[in-house]
Design a binder for these strands. Sequence first.
DNA 1: ATATCACTTAAAGTAAACTCTAAGTCAAGT
DNA 2: ACTTGACTTAGAGTTTACTTTAAGTGATAT
Lengths: 127, 127
Amino acid sequence: MTIAEVSKKYELTADTIRYYEKEGLIPRVPRNKSGIRDFDEVSCRWIDFIKCMRSAGLSIQVLQKYVELMNKGHSTAKERQELLNLQKEILVKKREDIDKTIDRLNYKIKIYDEIIGGKRKDFMEEP
Amino acid sequence: MTIAEVSKKYELTADTIRYYEKEGLIPRVPRNKSGIRDFDEVSCRWIDFIKCMRSAGLSIQVLQKYVELMNKGHSTAKERQELLNLQKEILVKKREDIDKTIDRLNYKIKIYDEIIGGKRKDFMEEP
DNA sequence: ATATCACTTAAAGTAAACTCTAAGTCAAGT
DNA sequence: ACTTGACTTAGAGTTTACTTTAAGTGATAT
């Protein structure tokens, strides 16, 4: 698969994919005889994995670390598990923040229904 | 309340609070006769609101826009509601991404239990 | 043969959200 | 009177995650 095909499939720009490779977020992608990237299934699975992790906000640095540990081999399995576990806990916390914010937004949206319906005054001085 | 007290209460640095005010994320904070900020309840409620929204990832720009509409008065109530509603929908989508990622991390963490327990091979080439 | 087009690289540039610095003011303590 | 420490401002600097640019290569279409 060419970078253009992968880019379309995963909705990431070719630039972003090259950047991820350069930064070591995905292992080096195989090239054909003229030096052009030819993505195999393993490369695609990596792209899919990184895209998922990035969509939730895991940092480039953390993902670099994960690939680095992967490259160091079996002895790093425990450390890799701990890394993933810490990131998971961060995401659980983040989800709580988002839940609280959604609740607050829903409440305000409801209040706005009343304001717009003339049933309540629009207090400009308060958020 | 001084900026130091507000900073402690809301766990935001004084710099961040000044930055939020300068950028118009919160209305201008009242000052005492020597020009020092003296936060009243309204200012504190704004800080609390902005902190909550920022914790979920709403952008500075969007929050600036909200304050700007607030300042324009009652006629912008509908637009403010729409702004909040759009942001809410973005957060719902974001929460789905986070949920998917948490699921995927949980799955991998479980697999690592097996790898560490010697029940499964550690396939280094796949994420 | 030549033009076109997608690809390659390294490196510079950008946007968002802070964070820090410099220079200064002011009130309180010794 | 003088030092200390928290505050003030404008503006420069930093970090993260891309994004763009410049210069070049190679395969295919005319």
